[in-house]
């Protein structure tokens, strides 16, 4: 589906051409599907309420859960792209060795933060599994979402380090 020579997305400053790895495309396809689902849920709800006087009762919480899934499916992509907002001030004035050292430092900090996110999300997921946490109207279990988020942060932490290793 994607062209291998496609230009890098330039919406986000400082981004490098992204990895065309299988995992990247797989997550991207999932993200696309989730965006489409978000659109579909709203449309079914809005159109349904006028044409059939039949609103879609689960639209609110389905939107919530699709949104969370989208954010966490996309996070490793943004991270692999180097798409997080950074302040780019006077760094280019430093000698290349210092720049590289700072780059590693920034990568390490990011990976640690993402790693802590992942760890806390595992704890949340485990608690939700234990307490049987579910959504209010559709009674969908919440724990899988927390585990998805945890996996996403863990993969992102690895992606940060791999990126630093390449550049």
């Amino acid at each position: 589906m994607t062209h291998p020579d496609a230009p890098p997305p330039d919406m986000i400053p400082g981004r490098t051409p992204h990895v065309q790895a299988t995992w990247y495309r797989l997550l991207a396809a999932m993200a696309a599907l989730l965006i489409l689902s978000l659109i579909a849920v709203t449309c079914i709800d809005v159109v349904g309420r006028y044409l059939m006087n039949r609103p879609f009762g689960g639209a609110f919480e389905l939107t919530q859960m699709l949104l969370a899934a989208l954010v966490f499916v996309a996070l490793p992509l943004t991270t692999a792209d180097g798409g997080h907002v950074e302040v780019d001030l006077a760094l280019h004035l430093l000698p290349p060795a210092a720049q590289a050292a700072l780059g590693w430092f920034a990568g390490l900090v990011s990976a640690v933060v993402l790693g802590v996110f992942a760890w806390r999300l595992v704890l949340i997921g485990a608690a939700q599994l234990h307490e049987g946490t579910r959504s209010a109207s559709l009674a969908l279990p919440m724990a899988p979402l927390a585990f998805l988020a945890a996996a996403s942060c863990a993969v992102s932490a690895i992606a940060v380090l791999m990126r630093r290793g390449r550049t």
Partner: peptide, 26 residues
């Protein structure tokens, strides 16, 4: 057929039992 916003599970079951459609939202 009346679409009623309810605060939670019990109220939802109650209005559903009377034929209304319960909806959840903040």
């Amino acid at each position: 057929g009346m679409k009623i916003r309810v605060p939670g599970g019990y109220a939802g079951d109650l209005v559903a039992a009377l034929g209304a459609a319960p909806l959840f939202m903040s």
